[in-house]
Write a protein that binds this DNA or RNA. Sequence first.
DNA 1: CTAGGTGCAAATAATTTGCAGAGGC
DNA 2: GCCTCTGCAAATTATTTGCACCTAG
Lengths: 315, 315
Amino acid sequence: MGVISRLPDLDRLRPAGTKRSSKRDFIVSVFLRQEGHLSADDLVDLIRREDHRISRATVYRTLHWMVDAGLARKVDFGEGRFRFEHSYRHPRHFHLICKTCNHSFEFLSSDIESIIEEVALARAFTAVQSVVHVYGECDACRTGRTASESVTATSERLFARDALRMAIATERSGLDFYTRAARIAQDPRGRQMFEALAGEEQEHLTTLEARYRELLAEDPSLEAQPTFLFFKGAANGLFAAGAEEVQREGVDDLEALRIGIRCERGSHRFFKRYGARFEDSEGKQIFLEFAEEERQHLALLIREYRALRERRRAS
Amino acid sequence: MGVISRLPDLDRLRPAGTKRSSKRDFIVSVFLRQEGHLSADDLVDLIRREDHRISRATVYRTLHWMVDAGLARKVDFGEGRFRFEHSYRHPRHFHLICKTCNHSFEFLSSDIESIIEEVALARAFTAVQSVVHVYGECDACRTGRTASESVTATSERLFARDALRMAIATERSGLDFYTRAARIAQDPRGRQMFEALAGEEQEHLTTLEARYRELLAEDPSLEAQPTFLFFKGAANGLFAAGAEEVQREGVDDLEALRIGIRCERGSHRFFKRYGARFEDSEGKQIFLEFAEEERQHLALLIREYRALRERRRAS
DNA sequence: CTAGGTGCAAATAATTTGCAGAGGC
DNA sequence: GCCTCTGCAAATTATTTGCACCTAG
């Protein structure tokens, strides 16, 4: 679970009716070794450096083959030529592009994605792919410092790190929420359920924190890297607000349940969205587990909500 | 104020050390007559259609001249060539791009813009320009219907329409908020202020509604066009929530003032952001007037808030 | 008269393609 | 042996440039 392996199964990926070739394998392996965004020319140079006579046309053909196979993505930074980034265990993302040093920095924003979905819906447009490019100048270029650019971790690891951070933060505020809800609950059955949920959150929290420490042990530079995954609504937005709401006077069991349902639903959606992104990775696992846990909590809360409402109606 | 004029002052725009030329004037005028996104080739075709012997190179040179002059923007839809759109009275915007018919549809989202600002800040990146391209399939292509594509209004008008709609919605919920606040206010001085503000909102609302009707009279097709400007927080988000909050028991004058301040500040920011976008237009005016009104209300509320707090402390 | 502006044709730059030979299955 | 892959050189596409001539100020 901890170690992130690096080799795609090329045989699986190979499109039907296609033959194996040592040159292509070589080009693919050189390409996958790189991080960042290569132009066709960059790749040709890298190939030539390893002293092989491989024609430019073959490199182009192999790049297209990789895009078809889903191993690479073609990206256009408006330079008048395309660049390629490998997509193997590398989620779709957005870019900050420095016009001075031509470096690009990746980020993910669930909020932008959902706004785009909303706009597309309003316009009856079927969105297939979204590109967000922010052009400007990076910190290193502006301040003149060379920046610790060398220590850039893979975005797979950054994704895992941020997934864990969010899961932990959400878990913490979830724990807070359920603890408070248990405290204010009038109904003994409801209180028991809130306590049980708080217990589960506590347990899961411990597991997640252990995982986070493990990830950092694998790559200590991770801690210092900038945020990769942005999400406003996550921990701070949802459960934290919920916890606060519960604290207000006049909130009864039923209302607490309703708040809990809202929170679980929101964060379930978020984790499910990101759980679906990756082919196979640490981050995906974390998110899917989380989504599943939240789905269960959600079902439990809804059941309890209905039951309580029934009981009230009856009495 | 109602009529939207269409002619840029070419003499003003002409960069220093540049001479007038009939060919360039002709190319510019043909270009500005078009809506939508033209490739260099499209423009050459249009020019040729009007039976002039103008070389391709001159068209390219003129396009660059227009970009320099701020009359046009170069956009890259990843087709392997650039397209140009005129920027004269045409705000920066994002694109939905149909891969089937190659048409593109424009939209604006204040939310995306602020998220991008946030991300850039977190990464210490100085953002200069943001591109959001959503690729997919448009409604017309998917359903097979030809769609009423011909009636596409200019985005200047769409911007004005949506600016007005938002202003009206905000004004309405602002009115609602101040009316309720006046009702719950204990302090006579505070009540008077809330009533005065409600009166102002009512008056402004009437003006805005008249303007909206005027705009529709100029171009009746406007009403049916899809949303151009997206903003979650606007009317529904800010004042409406505020109005609801005031209704809750336990809200006193001071708290109502605080809520009002939060609402005015949020919508002031929004209207100011969009007021700054246009060179000169109906939409810009609406937004700037609005921002100004809100700035005044904000100042008034803050003054009142401080005064009330002082009086309470003293007693 | 002099600095742009223009047309034409040639140059460039990234990428694609036709074709003949090499190689996997 | 067939069908795909590869290299090479030529083609294609969008855009730019050199140069001789034209035109506005």
